[in-house]
Design a protein around this nucleic acid. Structure first.
Lengths: 335, 335
DNA sequence: TTGAAAGCGTTACCAG
DNA sequence: CTGGTAACGCTTTCAA
């Protein structure tokens, strides 16, 4: 409640000195600084962010734009971002698009462009040319996590290579009848991610001279329930069945495992399943997967932003995060 | 990039009028308002939140304090909060404690007390007397979601009654050997939640003249992996086994189901399992549960806050959210 | 090392 | 209905 003036009065110095002392700036004598600190504590003084934001031009806040918070990947990135922000004493403004395509413009206008943040981190989002332009005109550091976006640097795995490696794991086990459970293009989400994984799958299949059956490439919505439903539909269909499935995410992969159980199929004997992510639950499911670390991606991206805000040289290039195969019990040679 | 003065100049009116026109305040002629709007659009003018925050005392932002974002319940509440904020054009500042007990004080000081928000919503957190006092002195509307907190109003289910109903479902099926997989007291989390559920369990058992075996009341950390591990430990132990288990959350309940599978037990034939939540995955698992809606709780709490900020009468009482039994295939009479 | 004073970009009050 | 003009509470030169 107390303002800076009261602290100044209590300490017998000017408000300028109080400001400098509290922010740890140089050129303040130790004794003065100590006295100011004490007074501030006693009076419960905390600088108003509006006022300091207005005066200094910095808000000490990072804007994070997410498609939703109900997906494992996003929550992990958020935790990573947050960990980094915490140590830099930055706050996080969360802009959740929540699938509301129509609200995007309002979010952009009302919030992002409102100088409430010093920098922006976007998750798995694609931007319209218009949005990109607005971002650029804002002129503050921007980065994307999870899937490349044209014109913006990003942090993320090599989607295509990762998908290829996953598929090759199945092929290496001797599978030839392989299905792909992919994400569909959700509105506003970065369609490069599911598309890249699909391309990697196709490329691996082609390289092994295997055929990709269109009816075995099915959309699983990136979620467990949708993945299960999609896989169930595939297994319900008469005719030949795949002996293995490469799912574009672990959540869908777990759904596929449940679908296998629904059909009385054993994993991996009757059906091998591999995913991407290494979700918190994957070990429990014995799911073989291409592990990645969204937490690290989030903190790495945040660090880049923070560095720049601290005056560091802006680094233009994108960052490739690692992904690696983790073999568990959901994959085996075909029976 | 343009400031309000440029819009004023372009329109030939004063900055005061621009401000009024853009915010939809009364006492502005339609023609003036239209002209101002057009000019603002053309110039790409958006008010600076720091400046208007400083001048008006309102930030148009809600602070949300969460223990973490990696739990289904929290993400659902966040979505609910966000939906409500969106329609009110409010922004969300996310304060993630992330289990960093030590950072709590910093978060409080640096951010919450920094007048960056107009109101505060806390998730499943317990506050120290000191923290409570700081909150009170801040003087802005506060509410808690998920578990009652002394001295603060809250929105949430009746923990004890819900747990009792869950337990009674098992008892009603004829079970007498019932275990409880509970949450443990995590640092800073609201311990009233797991404690209330445990008490409800005990009460139901006592009412049915059943004995609660201490070694069958085990901590599952509110997560699937920990729930599975805990249940596995219980099942590994020599001696009698429970025929049913009441888990304090669906995530733990699913873990228990996996543990049953690990031990070659069939659900529900060998082991009945019931949880609380109605997690997104629960239907896929056939999990019987006490359904609640954290999304609704989040939006209800936010609405209360927003109402007050809009000048509505502060409502003191807490709000009880509904929970109801959803019977699926994980529970049946003992074999 | 410190202080005085000029902003920062809005909003709100009071006249007109 | 509109304009002038103080705030709002800090930060940041520039002097001392």
């Amino acid at each position: 409640m107390a303002g800076i003036e009261e602290v100044a009065r209590a300490t017998g110095v000017s408000t300028a000195t109080v400001s400098r002392a509290l922010r740890g700036l140089p050129n303040v004598s130790d004794t003065t600084r100590a006295a100011v600190r004490r007074a501030a504590d006693e009076l419960g003084y905390v600088a108003s962010s509006s006022a300091s934001g207005l005066a200094s031009g910095r808000t000490l806040a990072l804007g994070v734009v997410v498609p939703s918070v109900s997906r494992w990947f996003y929550t992990q990135v958020l935790e990573g971002v947050d960990a980094e922000l915490r140590s830099a004493s930055y706050d996080m403004i969360l802009f959740n698009l929540g699938g509301h395509r129509g609200d995007r413009e309002r979010v952009f206008h009302r919030s992002i462009l409102r100088k409430r943040t010093d920098a922006l981190l976007a998750l798995c989002l694609d931007f319209t040319p218009d949005e990109r332009e607005q971002l650029a005109s804002l002129g503050h550091p921007t980065i994307v996590v999870g899937g490349p976006v044209k014109g913006l640097r990003s942090v993320g795995i090599d989607e295509k290579a990762t998908a290829r490696e996953a598929t090759n794991h199945l092929i290496g086990l001797g599978h030839t009848e392989i299905a792909h459970l992919g994400g569909e293009d959700e509105e506003g989400l970065n369609s490069n991610v599911p598309a890249g994984r699909l391309r990697g799958f196709e490329k691996a299949m082609r390289a092994a001279h295997l055929t990709v059956r269109p009816e075995w490439v099915i959309p699983g919505g990136f979620s467990l329930p949708e993945g299960r439903a999609a896989m169930n539909r595939l297994l319900d269909r008469p005719g030949p069945k795949p002996t293995a499935v490469f799912a574009g995410s672990d959540e869908m992969a777990m759904g596929a495992m449940l679908a296998a159980a629904d059909h009385g199929l054993r994993v991996p004997d009757d059906l091998s399943v591999i995913g991407i992510d290494d979700h918190d639950y994957s070990a429990c499911f014995g799911l073989t997967t291409m592990a990645q670390s969204p937490f690290e991606q989030g903190s790495a991206a945040t660090r880049i932003l923070l560095d720049e805000l601290a005056g560091g040289e802006p680094r233009a290039g994108s960052v490739r995060s690692p992904a690696h195969l983790v073999v568990r019990t959901s994959t085996a040679p075909p029976r």
